[in-house]
Every structure is written in structure tokens, then in C-alpha cells.
Design a protein around this nucleic acid. Structure first.
Lengths: 139, 139
DNA sequence: GCCCATTACTTGATGATGTCAACGATTGAT
DNA sequence: ATCAATCGTTGACATCATCAAGTAATGGGC
């Protein structure tokens, strides 16, 4: 045996390492905006002009639906998010951002996507290659 | 104005997106091992044979020291982790894994680093390029 | 040696996150 | 018309996370 590790495994292990390392970045950003990390996630997932059913949010976050209820309660009480009845199915409620929520979301994305100095270690060509590869991963 | 976005920004935005998407993977894995996501992080950070001071753990996790106390309390009560006095400084306590904790950590890494099907969308050359680039990012 | 500011961890109080079980309202299929 | 399944909420409970205050140990200045 001792088959060489497929590059996919190596790549994934590195990505996992990066995820663990990256986790520490969210709390400070969240604190600056007076949000919790979980609330940042919700805000991130509600794209402007694309109302999201609560159930879908629970599925994307891989958490219980009742958890989403609480998260949205707090965001709604701060005037960042709205619950609206779905036209198609009166059981479901869809979420969208208030203008205030929209502004805060922009701020969040700004803070989150300020590239860390680490990336400067890569050459321009490597940066472009990374962009191309990640784009394919996410498509 | 309207300078083209530097590739570093694009790359980082994609990584952030991947990071948000990835977050949903941890809870199921954690549940399978009867751990919480936070406990997985701690277990991940205590490398075998490399005792970690509690304070360093708090810094790496970007959280309050008292939070680490609670996390370690629960891990220790399950016999996964040990608190030991530091020889150099009697204020600090260093953490290391029990044999049971070591086994669980191996299991955790196995589960976490099983590459998702998504990676198969990349060609072998792209996978190798990704490995090379990520390795430089993390070094 | 003796203060004393600093550091490392713990404790207690409090709020947020997250799960589960049970519930009401709605849906859609029989 | 009934009835199982679905969506969101509620309540109970454990964990996560912060802050303020406390204890023990360290190390510097005197």
C-alpha cells in the first residue's frame, strides 16, 4: 500500500487548517459591528433583494430551526432584518434586510474581505491562479 | 479611479466565501464525535506531545481566558485532556491529551480532512497548484 | 529582603447560541 | 373531509462567551 496522498486530500487538509486559523478573525470583526459571529453569518446569507425562507437559513447553517427563530428575533429587534409572510405558502416566513441591515451588511463584508497581509507572500501570478481555482471550487 | 481589483482582494473574498460555506460542515462532524464545535477547536489545537498553556489557547481562539477554563473543564471531565502545572511558571497550566483524547483527535482529523466532492471539479494540475499556494500561505 | 504592578487562571453573573420535544397553523394528498 | 407532513414558534436545558472580581504566583524597584 502506502499509495501517495492524492493532491485533493492535501489541498483539503490545508484548507481545513486555514479555516481553523481563520475562525479567530470573526469575533473581533463581529464585536466591532456589535454583532455576534452567528449574527454575522445570518446577515451574510441574506443577500439584498433575495428574501430567504427561515427554513433554508437553518439548513444552510446546519442548525435547528428553533435556533434561527432566536437569531432572527434578535436581529429583527435591532431593526436589521424583517420577517415577511411568503406569498406562496403561508407557513413560511421569508427574511430580508432593512435599509439599516443592508448598510451593516456592507460594512461587514468590507471588514471581512480586507485581505490579510499573508496574501502578499504570494506572487501576482500565484494570486491570479488562486482566484481562478477558488472560483471553480465555488461555482 | 476604478482601478481594477487587485487579485489579492479577489482571492481573499473567495476564501471568505469558502470559509462561510465551510462553517456548516463542523457541527455534523462534531455531533458524530459527541463534541461541540468549540471543543473540536480545542482538541485540534492541542497537538500530541506539544503541551499548550491555557492562555495561549485563549489567544489563538481569540476568546476570553475564562471561556477556556470552562471548555477545558468539560474536556477534562470527559478524560480527554489533562491540566498540568508548568515547570517554569507555577501560574500557568499546560494542557495535553490523554490517550483517549489522542484517539478522538485522530478521529476528528480524519472526518474533517475527508475532502468534499467539490474538489474533484479541479483537474489534477489545479489541485497541485492549490496545494502549493496554500502551503505558502500557511507557512 | 519587601512592596507592588502585572500576569495566569478561576469564579460568578449574565446573555447568546444551540439542541430537543411539543405545539399551532398550514399544506397537500388521499 | 381527514390526516400525515411541513414550517415556524415556544419552553426547558446545556454550552459558549463576555465581563468584573478574586486568588496565586511572578518579577522589578527599592
Amino acid at each position: 500500500m502506502s499509495r501517495p496522498t492524492p493532491p485533493a486530500c492535501d489541498a483539503w487538509q490545508l484548507l481545513v487548517q486555514l479555516f481553523f486559523a481563520q475562525r479567530a478573525n470573526l469575533p473581533p470583526v463581529a464585536a466591532e459591528l456589535e454583532l455576534s459571529p452567528a449574527q454575522c453569518h445570518v446577515l451574510h446569507l441574506i443577500e439584498p433583494g433575495r428574501p430567504v425562507p427561515m427554513g433554508q437559513l437553518a439548513e444552510t447553517l446546519a442548525c435547528d430551526a428553533s435556533n434561527v427563530t432566536g437569531l432572527v428575533d434578535r436581529l429583527e429587534s435591532r431593526g436589521l432584518v424583517r420577517r415577511r409572510p411568503s406569498a406562496a405558502d403561508r407557513r413560511v416566513k421569508v427574511l430580508d434586510l432593512t435599509p439599516k441591515g443592508l448598510r451593516l451588511r456592507e460594512l461587514l463584508l468590507d471588514r471581512m474581505t480586507a485581505p490579510p497581509a499573508t496574501l502578499q507572500k504570494l506572487s501576482a501570478a500565484e494570486q491570479r491562479a488562486l482566484v481562478r481555482i477558488l472560483a471553480r471550487l465555488l461555482e
